[in-house]
Each structure stands twice: as structure tokens, then as C-alpha cells.
């Protein structure tokens, strides 16, 4: 017999987790789509967001504002950090080959983590409660209100992003650049500006992801972004890297798989199952679920 309430709970938890992965995966996928680079520092932008929340929530609360408003500051901080990383470290190695790009990204990840270690110390900081919402009863299942609200936020942001990319001029330019950089320049698109904006949006999304993550796991430490980032990246590749709906799909899949394996199959193995699925998908369809296959021209 299937326990309905446990099932519903798992769905909500999975979607909630998946929405976090999806938001982070979007950052990876947009950057990869535009400059073909795995931005390993992206996970650490979440850490930046986490620490910002830790330090600003008390200020917000003292000023009589709701705690979640801190996300605005987190967005600002993450955007600045993201753009700075792109401008200072990534731009100079653009065109130096994928090996250099990869190593630079790893180095920036290392840099951010150790900077945080120097600034904030090794002990985890516990982030104050972000949403004070009651449990909600749904078909016999007790669902935490904060899980539902973060899920709604996540989905809303993905929808907004999709509208932005599809219908605004800037969004169209962002889709044009990955297709053909030279042609984009010819039609008057400032490619460097688009790349910077891509990093800005990606980092802002990481800040929102930090808010969602910290509302469930209220802890900020220097390595919080590593595993989260890695899994989100896996999600992006799974869905088809460089493709925005792919990141969302991949994120949701990874979230659901993790929760369901944890609850129903083998709690210790959930990460292995996720990675296993990724490997199988890549072997069957090397460019991911929604990816297009491109052979090399001879």
C-alpha cells in the first residue's frame, strides 16, 4: 500500500529541492551557453548569498522589515561578485582554450571559499528563520509552508526568466550570442555586455537559490556551495547544457530523484543514483535530454 501523505510530501519536497537546483542550474547553463565555460565558482555564489543573508537578516528584522527582504541585498551582493569574477578573472582567459577556462573557474571557486574562510571563519553560521509559516494540511499530508512558498517563488522566477528571454530585446540578444558571436556583433549586439548581463542574472538567481536553500537548511558555511553547485551542474548537463528549459527540467528531475530515492529506495545511495542517471543519459544522448546533437564538420 502506498502511503498517500508520504507520497505527496515527497513530491513537494522533491519539487522544492528541484526548484533550488533549477535556479542554480540556470546560472550554469546560461554561462555555458554563452561562453562554453563551466563556471565552477557559480556554486560559491550561493555561499556568498548565504553569508549575506546571515549578516543582513538581523538588520532587516531590527528595522521592522520581513526577513526575506534580505534577499534583495543578497541579490545585489551576488551580482557584484559574479560580475567582478567575470571581469577580473574570466574575461582575460576567454579564447585561451577550454582547459584554461576550466582551471580559472576552479581557481575562482577556491578563491571565494578561502576568502570566506578568512573573513568569516570555519564555523558554520546559523541563518535566522526566513519564513514563519505554519504547516499546511493537504490530503492528510503535513506540508511545511516554507517549502510551498519557496517552490512558488522558484517556479515564478523561472517563468519570469522564460518571458524575459523570449520576449524582451535583451533576452533575444542573449539567445542570439550563443548561436553566433560574430553575427551578433555585426547586428550591433555588444557581446561583452551580454556576457556581463548573463553573469549578473546567473548570480542573482544564485542569491534567490541561497534564500530558498537557507529557509530549509538554515546554515551558512564556506563549502555549502560545492555540493549544491555540483548537483545543480549535473542537473544542467542532464537537461542539456546551454538550454534554459533543460536546466529547469534537469533541476526538477534531480530534486525528485534525490527525495524519492531517499524516502523509498536506499537513503545512503541517493547521490550515486543521480550521478548514475546522468551517466546513462549522456551515454545514450551525449548532449542531454533536450540537447541537440552536433557532429564535427570534416
Amino acid at each position: 500500500m502506498l502511503n498517500v501523505s508520504l507520497f505527496i510530501q515527497s513530491i513537494v519536497n522533491g519539487l522544492n529541492q528541484g526548484a533550488v537546483y533549477a535556479l542554480v542550474a540556470l546560472g550554469y547553463t546560461m554561462v555555458y551557453g554563452i561562453i562554453r565555460m563551466i563556471n565552477f565558482a557559480h556554486g560559491d555564489f550561493i555561499m556568498v548569498g548565504g553569508y549575506t543573508l546571515f549578516y543582513t537578516i538581523p538588520l532587516m528584522v531590527n528595522a521592522g522589515m520581513p526577513a526575506w527582504m534580505s534577499v534583495i541585498i543578497a541579490i545585489a551582493v551576488c551580482t557584484i561578485v559574479g560580475v567582478a569574477v567575470e571581469r577580473i578573472a574570466y574575461k582575460p582567459v576567454r579564447g585561451a582554450g577550454s582547459m584554461s577556462a576550466l582551471i580559472t573557474a576552479l581557481a575562482m571557486s577556491l578563491f571565494l571559499e578561502n576568502l570566506a574562510l578568512v573573513l568569516f571563519g570555519a564555523n558554520p553560521k546559523s541563518v535566522p528563520a526566513i519564513f514563519n509559516l505554519p504547516m499546511i494540511d493537504f490530503a492528510g499530508a503535513k506540508l511545511p509552508g516554507k517549502a510551498l512558498i519557496t517552490l512558488v517563488i522558484g517556479l515564478a522566477i523561472m517563468l519570469l526568466l522564460q518571458i524575459f528571454i523570449k520576449f524582451t530585446k535583451l533576452g533575444k540578444a542573449m539567445r542570439a550570442v550563443p548561436q553566433d558571436k560574430q553575427a551578433s556583433t555585426l547586428v550591433g549586439i555588444n557581446v561583452n555586455k551580454i556576457i556581463t548581463i548573463t553573469f549578473a542574472i546567473g548570480s542573482a538567481l544564485a542569491a534567490v537559490a541561497a534564500l530558498m536553500y537557507c529557509s530549509t537548511y538554515p546554515r551558512a558555511n564556506t563549502e555549502m556551495g560545492v555540493m549544491l553547485g555540483l548537483k545543480a551542474f549535473i542537473a544542467a548537463v542532464l537537461g542539456g547544457i546551454g538550454i534554459i528549459p533543460g536546466a529547469m527540467l534537469g533541476g526538477i528531475i534531480v530534486g525528485l530523484v534525490e527525495i524519492f530515492v531517499k524516502v523509498y529506495l536506499a537513503p545512503g545511495w541517493y547521490e550515486a543514483i543521480t550521478y548514475g542517471i546522468l551517466i546513462v543519459v549522456l551515454l545514450v544522448k551525449p548532449t542531454g535530454i533536450l540537447g541537440k546533437n552536433i557532429g564535427e564538420k570534416v
Binding site: 555555458y32 563551466i38 555540483l230 547544457i241
Partner: peptide, 9 residues
């Protein structure tokens, strides 16, 4: 990059 990811996995 795809091979790199599989090795991580």
C-alpha cells in the same frame, strides 16, 4: 566538458 562531468560523476 562532457567527459569531465562523467569522470566527476
Amino acid at each position: 566538458d562532457y567527459l569531465a562531468i562523467v569522470t566527476v560523476a
